[in-house]
Computed example of a mutant assay.
Amino acid sequence: MTATLHIDEISTDDFLALARTGSEPVPIEQGPAWDPYDEAVEGREHWRRLVIKAGADAVAVVSLSAYEGRGFRYLWARHGPVWLTEQTPERERMVRAALIAYLRKEAPWAAFVRLHAKHPASDLHELLQTVTYDHTVILDLTKSEDDILASFSKRGRYKTRRTLKDEAMTVTEESNCTPEEFEELYAIYRETAERDGFGIFPASVYLEMLESLGEHVRLWVARRHDTGADGDLLPGRAVSWVLSTVYDNAGCDTYAAGNMEARNTNAAIRLKWEIITALKAEGITQYDLMGVGSDRAPTLMGVREFKQQFGEIVYVDPAWDVALKPLRYRMLGWALRAKRALRR
């Protein structure tokens, strides 16, 4: 690529028209469906949609949201840019250089921009906060159910068939649950976080997602039922749940939790099967299990073996920080490292 890149703000309609010419589904976080969620969460708002061009040809598009941390602000292109041409190291470098120049002028308040890139480079930094991943499992839902099951590992097929025979377990969609009903599920999430050693948001964040994303978010719950004296199943207790997003014919795990009873009964396996078959029936073409452990994401090693039961692990672009104010960014890094050291 030899042409000088330039960047323009574009409308949502133009953004989608370009983004959908790419080879992959548009990530929900890059689409307009995500905007109401950004608006609902304190300290976040959608900022702009941009097109990066070489002459008259669009190279990539990107949607950016503004985030406010404790004492600093930054921009995040979750699962962006969306590439419209071959994603070479040189093109990535040129796009970042153009973005840096644009953002320093148009967003002088931003300390850094967080975006995704395939190729490591000297201007890409490990994230100051949060977890990224560079490997996942993506299921092809255009296959028949038999072929999908056949693509599972031997152990995954065995567990799936076994849990489907468990008549004491049901899976239902409960996307319209009330805050009071969600308390049962949030208690399971707290148990999961304490067991596996990760942090979680207040329950309001997940409820805001359910409300603001509308038809693009689904909550699936696995329940275990005792049998009454008449032989009928009694109302079930939640043991595991998954919150999925669905956009541009693609689904994705977003949050998931399971208690010890779920682990002992393979409820998470049953949940995955019920989700993918339900979405397949609706015409959804792929389902992303959203991240497995790797050298870049060691904190996700605990779910790598579980998710590998459903298919082959594939590479995806991880997130990186790109400093817009290098000195300010270094100071933030020092402050955060000092804070973590004090906690330890």
Rank of each mutant, 00 (worst) to 15 (best):
N259A: 04
L336H: 09
A17W: 00
F310K: 02
I148K: 08
E29L: 07
R114I: 05
D13C: 08
W47G: 05
E145G: 12
G251W: 02
L139E: 05
F198D: 00
E39Y: 12
I269D: 02
P298V: 06
R344Q: 10
H135L: 09
T160H: 02
Y206P: 02
E174S: 08
I7T: 08
A203H: 01
H119I: 05
L213S: 05
P89E: 01
A250R: 02
I313R: 12
R195V: 06
G291D: 03
M290R: 13
G69C: 07
I52V: 08
L103E: 00
V246H: 02
L128P: 05
A268I: 08
F201I: 08
G156W: 00
G80W: 00
W334M: 06
G80I: 06
K280H: 02
Q30Y: 11
E68G: 13
E90N: 15
A267Q: 01
V205I: 13
A101I: 01
F201Q: 09
A66M: 13
D38Y: 15
G302A: 15
E208N: 10
A121W: 11
L210N: 01
V314K: 12
V61G: 09
S122H: 10
N266F: 03
Q87S: 09
W34I: 06
D147Y: 08
W47N: 00
L124E: 07
P108C: 14
A297D: 06
A107W: 05
M290T: 07
V137D: 03
W34F: 06
G80N: 02
N259L: 08
